[in-house]
Nucleic acid binder design. Structure first.
Length: 885
RNA sequence: GCCCGAGUGGUGAAAUUGGUAGACACAGCGGACUUAAAAUCCGCCGCUUUCGUGAAUAGCGGGCGUACCGGUUCGAUUCCGGUCUCGGGCACCA
């Protein structure tokens, strides 16, 4: 007998211990129970920040719904979990709490794992991994050494944010308005050596699967928007690289850069409009200008100020300085002034650009500011060029033809570029070149809590790779960072405890660690090969490529691109057989929450959790600020993704405690479609709770009828009208639910479940031919199971269905009985001149002519058509008729 | 600034992708049950009170309505052009 009240705590505890006792979600390769083969559905691994937040709940519930439905459909489904356990927040927590990052991290993992278990996720925990475990990061080091051997990894200088007070490198996140977040000191750019991975060697291979539908690896299972973002990020552009000759010499009298200052441009058609050139403050010509005129040096240094991000560069005021040096225009021989510009980056291309004020908006502004020449070389018929103000057509290469450009005059963009390129080739001063926006991946971080880069530095033999048999280079776990510099440098046993593999003498160990994007570039393959003494083994070839990857849209570019690149490197090294890791991708929308902060005395921001803040509203009801309980006024930072750094995450634990995992999961799925972003609000969670109670009490109320059995004839002719009507309604809804599962629109799956219950409650249970009621209720339990596994599995067992056909997890998915859908008549919407005016009922099998006749005869047509005769009748089968008069 | 999205009732959203806008819910309002409350159940619920007809801010009918302006179409939340606002990413947050 089903108990009268739904006790979620008892139901969920019992279900979860049953799953644990039976290892319900441990999967093996080639399991004969699953005829449809494997399905690998994986969520992006969480950073162990302390507690789960609603974004995690959303991510894993989507994954879990998918898991359970596909398993019932006959797939061998793998859902693993792990921890992105290296990274900056652990160091910050260590500084704040004076505990080593390792301790903080492992405690967080333990707590969050228990939270996940209380959510009832079908995770195979036997495959759990943590990035900070030497068993895992050993393989980061191993593959890094392989890449060094292949020349994919190399060493060069990189530009970092330097905090002069703390004497440390800052992450972009730690630079706030150009100042260090802890010290408030003005951040400087500094050039230091580091390791890079040649992702640009794979640029074309990374581009084709996102840009070319004819590519064999085209990622058709990815959202269009993500492919577009990756395509633009890789940014293939065809242009011209050429040199401006000059006779500037260095202190020794030799020509600087052999007398050729190279630039790259996609607008070679405007070469005759060049009136100046600009170089980065670190460029050889800028350095030489400083030597020749020492007064300039501090001004050149000042142009290096500010952060390194592209966003910051794009919006900052363009400033420059004339060097007094000149180069020669490659084609005209004119003398062109060399400027140093704060908007020119040494790390992009050649660190120098040509200035065409007439046809580049940035150059136009720069020329106006510093009174440089503006020379029109592209014209559009009927449009007047004026140096007074910028107009969009000046920079549009799609319109216009060349003027004032010698033999290019009259040519359009493409022909003009060809012509100019030919001229440059003849002079041996330039060539056509494909360039990429994509830059090589710098992986060196001057931080403690990451994978040690397996290199030792010998005074005699330089940077030497650690021999393979000495891997892993184990990271000490007892350091507590204090914010000044990298603790590994101060850790004598680590830093100085190495020997040179060449000469055996004492050597310094590399103290840089790897970017944490390395950890997340292949963890999903380690899940397939737990405990292996190789990076991945044959089991990886069974599960990979991953069938469905699920994670936040904020990872659409970097993480996914790095993971694709890493996979291609593994393919190059014959470690895997595939070239793309993720067949299908679902980018769930972010869970957003309000952000409140106050300014601290270091010019940084101190954030406050929204649940401690009372919003301050303006007359329109918009939030303009906040107030703490003690009256402190706060700034409002809009809504943003839930996370640790802005302290606006919401811990799901309260909701799970109060309503249970099933209600929490159901509500999270119901409240928005998976791909939409979602401003968090739990005001409506009661509705989901109420729905589950109704499901429970329906089973309790109709216990006797329902437990009579789900077996029995499904012969349509034996059902009475009540049974037929109920079945038609429920199978119609089931058809929609199955479609919504296919397209991963789980919010309407939940709506569908509610419609099924509404239909059941609306029917007279005792008037329905058995076993139609049990059949319909068993459909409800099955379609509800993926979102609410505890309550459905319990009711399934209690009603005796498990004894009849097996446990819910293992029974077949509910399929639509097409015969139940048949109806004699169909109602069509009637429109007159495109406006809805009523409806007509026709036989289901009525043909177009019959429908047209019925529509023409409808009284509404006469009324709204004002007696005019129909000119045209449009019939949309099964839906609508539009009469045009 | 550049790239990518989103904008629909008081609220979350739906509309099988050009075919009844608001399914399913939340909140609210009205009612039933109850000594009362909770729970439960039933009903209403875009705007138009100076659009018509009504005594009526009840019904019925009409008109309007998917951020804003314009276009294509028999028909547009859906397609096209432009604008605004919000969110994500911009290479050292993860």
């Amino acid at each position: 007998m089903i108990e009268s009240t739904y006790n979620h705590k008892a139901v969920e505890a019992a279900a979860q211990s049953h799953w644990a006792a039976t290892n319900a979600y441990t999967v093996i390769e080639n399991d004969p129970r699953f005829p449809k083969g494997k399905y690998y559905a994986c969520s992006m691994l969480p950073y162990p920040s302390g507690k789960l937040h609603m974004g995690h709940v959303r991510n894993y519930t989507i994954n879990d719904m998918m898991y359970r439905q596909l398993r019932m459909r006959g797939y061998n489904v793998l859902q693993p979990m792990g921890w992105d356990a290296f990274g900056l927040p652990a160091e910050n927590a260590a500084m704040k709490n004076k505990v080593p990052p390792a301790k903080w991290t492992y405690e967080n993992i333990a707590y969050m794992k228990q939270q996940m278990q209380s959510m009832g996720l079908a995770i195979d925990w036997s495959r759990e991994m943590a990035a900070c475990s030497p068993d895992y990061y050993k393989w980061n080091q191993w593959l890094f050494l392989k890449m060094l051997e292949k020349g994919i990894a190399y060493r060069k200088t990189q530009i970092v944010n330097w905090d002069p007070v703390d004497q440390t490198v800052l992450a972009n996140e730690q630079v706030i308005d150009g100042r260090g977040w802890r010290t408030g000191a003005l951040v400087e750019k500094r050039e230091i050596p580091g390791y890079y991975l040649k992702i640009t060697d794979y640029a074309q291979e990374l581009l084709d699967p996102v840009a070319n539908p004819d590519s064999p690896d085209f990622l058709k299972g990815w959202p269009d928007r993500v492919r577009a973002m990756q395509e633009n990020w890789i940014g293939k552009s065809e242009g011209v690289r050429f040199a401006f000759p000059h006779d500037i010499t260095d202190a020794s009298g030799a020509l600087v850069q052999n007398g050729k200052m190279y630039v790259f441009t996609t607008r070679a058609d405007t070469i005759m409009g060049v009136t100046f050139v600009a170089v980065a403050p670190e460029h050889a010509l800028a350095l030489r200008a400083g030597e020749l005129n020492p007064e300039l040096t501090p001004q050149i240094e000042a142009l290096k100020a500010g952060g390194t991000t592209e966003a910051e560069l794009a919006v900052k005021e363009k400033e420059g300085l004339a060097t007094g040096l000149f180069v020669t225009h490659t084609l005209t021989g004119e003398s062109l002034p060399v400027w140093v510009g704060n908007y020119v980056l040494i790390s992009y291309g050649d660190g120098a650009v040509m200035g065409v004020p007439a046809h580049d908006e940035r150059d136009f502004a720069f020329a106006k500011k510093y009174d440089l020449g503006i020379k029109q070389v592209v014209a559009v018929e009927g449009k007047q060029f004026s140096t007074d103000a910028w107009a969009d057509w000046y920079g549009d290469k799609q319109v216009g033809t060349c003027v004032n450009s010698g033999n290019c005059d009259g040519l359009r963009y493409k022909d003009a570029v060809d012509q100019v390129a030919t001229a440059l080739i003849v002079l041996h001063l330039g060539e056509k070149k494909t360039t990429w926006r994509l830059r090589d991946w710098g992986i060196s971080r001057q931080r403690y809590w990451g994978t040690p880069i397996p290199i030792v530095h010998c005074d005699e033999h330089g940077a030497q790779p650690v021999p393979y048999d000495q891997l892993p280079v184990v990271l000490p776990t007892d350091c507590i960072p204090d914010g000044s510099g990298n603790p590994l440098i101060k850790h004598e046993g680590f830093h100085k405890g190495a020997t040179c593999p060449v000469c055996g003498k004492a050597a310094r160990r590399e103290t840089d660690t790897m970017d944490t994007f390395v950890d997340s570039s292949w963890y999903f393959m380690r899940y397939t090969s737990p405990g292996s003494d190789r990076m991945v083994d044959a089991r990886n070839d069974y599960w990979m490529p991953m069938d469905q990857y699920i994670g936040g849209i904020e990872h659409a570019i970097l993480h996914l691109l790095y993971a694709r690149f890493w996979t291609k490197v593994m393919h190059t090294l014959d470690l895997v057989k595939f070239k793309e890791p993720f067949t299908k991708l679902l980018c769930q929308g972010m869970v957003l929450n309000h952000i409140y902060y106050s300014r601290n005395d270091k010019d940084g921001k101190d954030y406050f959790p929204p649940d401690q803040v009372a919003p301050v509203l303006d007359a329109q009801g918009h939030i303009t600020g906040g107030r703490l309980a003690d009256g402190t006024e706060l700034h409002y930072g809009g809504v943003g993704k839930m996370g640790k750094s802005e302290r606006n995450g919401v811990d799901p634990q309260d909701m799970i405690e109060k309503y249970g995992a099933d209600t929490s999961r159901l509500y999270m799925m119901f409240t928005a479609p998976p791909e939409a972003s979602l401003e968090w609000n739990d005001a409506a969670v009661e509705g989901s709770w109420k729905f589950l109670r109704r499901v429970w009490s329906y089973a309790n109320k109709h216990d006797a009828v329902l437990r009579a059995g789900i077996a029995g004839p499904r012969d349509e002719s034996k059902f009475n009208d009540a049974a037929k009507n109920l079945r038609r309604e429920i199978h119609t809804t089931l058809k929609q639910i199955n479609f919504d599962f296919e397209r991963i629109q789980y919010n309407t799956v939940v709506s569908g479940c509610m419609k099924v219950l509404n239909a059941l409650e609306g029917a007279d249970a005792n008037a329905i031919t058995p076993p139609a009621l049990s059949e319909c209720f068993s459909i409800l339990l099955r379609v509800l199971y993926p979102s609410c596994p505890h309550i459905t599995e319990t009711l399934w067992r209690e009603l005796g269905y498990a004894a009849q056909i097996g446990e819910l997890l293992n029974v077949a998915w509910a399929e639509v009985d097409e015969k139940a859908l048949v109806s004699d008549t169909v109602e069509l919407v009637l429109q007159v001149n495109g406006k809805t005016r009523g409806s007509i009922v026709v036989a289901s099998n009525a043909d177009k002519t019959a429908i047209e006749a019925a529509a023409a005869a409808a009284p509404d047509v006469a009324k709204f058509g004002e007696g005019r005769t129909p000119k045209k009748i449009i019939v949309v089968p099964g839906r609508l008729v539009n009469v045009v008069v």
